[in-house]
């Protein structure tokens, strides 16, 4: 009979080749593929994360890292390759250039990392006189601002004063006096800017009258009046005003109608063009026609 109750002193059999229960379990655990992977990848990661966490836990270390980072970043960004030293404005006249320089207050030299080109482009494009803008940093450290300027095509007289507007009816700039831009047609009245292309066509038709023509007045946002020298007016219909004006121009060239003492030519009813004479002319007309009768 072998000894069943173990002697405490000889509890361990000296040359027992058997692994203990825990050693056996440990070996099995180490042979488990998932656990091995965890040890191989997870443990180093956890160690690194732990060390990093402990180090960053210190306020001073965080500050130092931040300071170093900022210093390195500034040093890199202020390298001469990235510096912008001048602004070149293309496609703008002197007045607009001044405005652009006002809205883009840059203290050159500045690093290109600090330039928010899209924001700056929007600022420039928001200027009234600018139709579109394109910004880029040209090699050589030059900020190129290429703008397409709005071309004023007409002068619009409103209650607030004279305005220059472009072909789309957009406001370009205010105008001090009509005499500053005598080359541009003058329009007036509410909604005149919206019907600008019609006004320009009418101007083209009224080419022979250029020296007599004072301007076009939009009435009721519906139809045009052509105002001539001396208060003479041509009232055009809302439908097909160009054709009506052409008829007037034909009458004028055939019979010099507008040189006569006429206050108003009313073309609103195409079937019955009407003229109004000035009072002396009307009296003379009445007299002569009475004599005839």
């Amino acid at each position: 009979m072998r000894q069943v109750a173990r002697d405490k002193d000889n509890a361990r059999i000296p040359r027992d080749p058997a692994p203990s229960r825990w050693r056996y379990r440990y070996q099995r655990l180490m042979l488990t593929p998932g656990f091995r992977k965890l040890l191989r990848i997870g443990a180093p990661l956890a160690l690194i994360a732990g060390i990093a966490g402990a180090w960053f836990g210190q306020e001073a270390n965080r500050m130092a890292v931040q300071a170093t980072w900022i210093e390195l970043r500034d040093e890199f960004q202020s390298r001469p390759e990235f510096m912008v030293s001048a602004m070149d404005i293309i496609g703008a006249d002197g007045d607009l250039s001044g405005q652009i320089r006002d809205v883009l207050p840059l203290n050159f030299p500045v690093t290109s990392f600090d330039l928010e080109l899209e924001d700056m482009r929007e600022l420039v494009a928001a200027l009234n006189a600018v139709e579109s803008a394109r910004l880029r940093v040209r090699p050589g450290g030059i900020l190129e601002v290429a703008v397409v300027q709005r071309e004023p095509v007409a002068v619009w007289r409103t209650a607030q004063g004279l305005k220059l507007i472009d072909a789309g009816g957009h406001f370009v700039s205010p105008l001090q006096a009509r005499a500053d831009r005598p080359d541009l047609p003058l329009i007036a009245g509410m909604g005149a800017d919206a019907a600008l292309d019609e006004a320009l066509r009418l101007y083209a038709v009224a080419e022979p009258l250029t020296e007599k023509l004072r301007g076009l007045v939009r009435l009721g946002d519906r139809r045009w009046d052509v105002v001539l020298e001396g208060g003479q007016k041509i009232l055009l219909p809302s439908d097909n005003p160009v054709r009506a004006l052409e008829r007037v121009m034909a009458l004028d060239s055939a019979q010099d109608m507008l040189d006569r003492d006429i206050a108003l030519v009313d073309m609103r009813n195409a079937a019955r063009p009407t003229i109004r004479l000035n009072p002396p002319a009307a009296a003379a007309f009445r007299r002569t026609s009475g004599k005839l009768q």
Binding site: P17, P19, R21, Y24, T32
Partner: peptide
């Protein structure tokens, strides 16, 4: 006949075989 001893012997054999196979 003796459970604990047999269990240890089985563990010995299994551990060695697992070690050779490198698989659990």
């Amino acid at each position: 006949d003796a459970m604990a001893e047999t269990e240890r012997a089985i563990r010995t054999a299994l551990q060695a075989a697992q070690k050779m196979a490198q698989v659990r």
